[in-house]
Design a protein around this nucleic acid. Sequence first.
DNA 1: GCCCGTTATCGAAGCGCTTCGACAACTGAA
DNA 2: TTCAGTTGTCGAAGCGCTTCGATAACGGGC
Lengths: 346, 346
Amino acid sequence: MANITEVAEAAGVSISTVSYALSGKRPVAPDTRRRIEAAVLELGYSPNAGARMLAGSRTQIFAITEPLRKDTHAPTHMAFVLATAVAARRHDYDILLLTDEQAQAGMSRVAANGLVDAILVLDVAPDDSRVALARQIATPTVFIGIPEDNDGLICVDLDFEAAAARAVDLLADAGHASIGLVGQAETAYLKSNFPPRVRGAVLARSAERGVTAVYGTSGAKNANRAAARRTAGELLDGGATALILHCADEAHAAVLAEVAARGLSVPADVSIVSVGASFDTTALAIPVDSIPLVPEASCDLAVELALQCLGDEPPEPGLRLIAPTYSPHGSVSAPPGPPASEAAAA
Amino acid sequence: MANITEVAEAAGVSISTVSYALSGKRPVAPDTRRRIEAAVLELGYSPNAGARMLAGSRTQIFAITEPLRKDTHAPTHMAFVLATAVAARRHDYDILLLTDEQAQAGMSRVAANGLVDAILVLDVAPDDSRVALARQIATPTVFIGIPEDNDGLICVDLDFEAAAARAVDLLADAGHASIGLVGQAETAYLKSNFPPRVRGAVLARSAERGVTAVYGTSGAKNANRAAARRTAGELLDGGATALILHCADEAHAAVLAEVAARGLSVPADVSIVSVGASFDTTALAIPVDSIPLVPEASCDLAVELALQCLGDEPPEPGLRLIAPTYSPHGSVSAPPGPPASEAAAA
DNA sequence: GCCCGTTATCGAAGCGCTTCGACAACTGAA
DNA sequence: TTCAGTTGTCGAAGCGCTTCGATAACGGGC
């Protein structure tokens, strides 16, 4: 591990010139720059991280707090961690991972010892305890997800309400009058921030549009599959001609299995839209229209905001809702025509 | 963010005394220590991370390289990351997360700029490219998993061979003469290091014990469930009276579903042992005997080794295999007795 | 009462970098 | 020719901490 002094000697310049050549903060003669670059390459020089943190004002590290609880949906969370890491690296930032108990103690610690430039909060719960912490530390903090009490915080998230409303509109526009929502396990409505937002918006928008909407859970972790099937069955029995799915990968598959088992086809007999999925709904047995939750969208923006916090004009606190996108894959159409008798009556 | 000078002033001592009081590297008078501790508390002092890295020889950070590829089994990987983070925190270490491309470039980078004290390599592939990198950097590196070419490396892992052999012994001892192995998707045998080790050991031990063993895949990600059922069916059709499961959570469930669908009961008709599972096999429809892969075991040891690398007597390079444990849950018994006719003939 | 060995504390020297101010060397306008 | 303005480079002052002597202050053995 060569240091800046060795590079300066090798290039025949002073260490400050080396520093300026590498940072570009002051002009350096082309010829000098070349000699320095050659020395850097030859010595395999890389500026010492500790020295940089101490002398400069940046650590080039973001902390991510992600509880990684055993009962969370691993693939989704992993996708968010990954997306954040990738976004951070694009700006030359590394990721310090704070898990479980650390999400609390760790946040204070890294804020106090100046290890990180900003903190990104993942897997946000409605009553997240990290909210209070964020308010009392000086380190800029960005939430990916929206806690209930979000006054003065910077939050980024998919506009779940708009996504849910869009799904309802899609189905109502196609002529459906009765919609079923396959939601998440009951506990998810307490531990995560978005399930209640989707449920609320589906019900509200349905009321506005004058269509009926019924909600059902997709069950807890291990009973996932069976519960999702049962719920889908109940919703269809209740007269729903369309389903909105806001649940895990396997629950989607289970719903499709139930639909198939009943001899129903998509979209002729049942229309289906997935809301807030962060997996590929075209890889299912039947490709499903999706208004997805795209981790990259939220995480890129969150990193962007974190960086802005470090600049001279920090962004306004408040919510940043990402507009939903709609990817049709042919799983939505008009509801089945009325039975022959009714059609005749009309 | 108070600094050590302010603490020293508040306590009426010099900064070196504060440093010694906090590190314990030299004796400090009880009364002085009390005053310093009070000042620390009052000012909310926490030593600056950058300054510590620069002045001291430790950064108190370990890097974790974990590709987090989209096609990996998220829950298992998350469990390992979590276990490593927890083990590291116990020793006052933080975790820097290096994902995907970073697993390569990131490793060199943090080794070169001295950001971390050691690197922990997760999700090790048989022909892992991080092996070559580990050999050429000065930063101590510990592998959790065993690459094919592991000369001179420090590797930690469950003794999969022993675990597989143990499973075979268990079943052979119970009287089974024909064993089926429900393995992983074909691709897993190339990208991960342990599936081939389990398969090889099951086959080898079976040969030694004079029982026949047949291997079947449990299919790729989305076809997981169906493929696992099919495979289990084929193995049972082939005359297997016992199954060794080395596959994901859902594949376990699928196998049990197939067994149930055939009207067979566990363990009366079929004995089942799970090998290398890092989830709770008692939460399945039928509790299954398990010779588990315990992330904590590997990760604790790996962190321990990383710490030793920083001490005066670094550990010998080589493999550290963790002895398997067996948790019986009543899914293994003698094979069903011979049909009445055979029994009479005997 | 003197010297030596403890014990508790202090001062100062870095660790490797960034950044500010200074200063030559050179340009072009007056 | 002189002077102001560039441009490229350098020296030095920290950033906040750890750690190595050095030095008081004290007590016990002679």
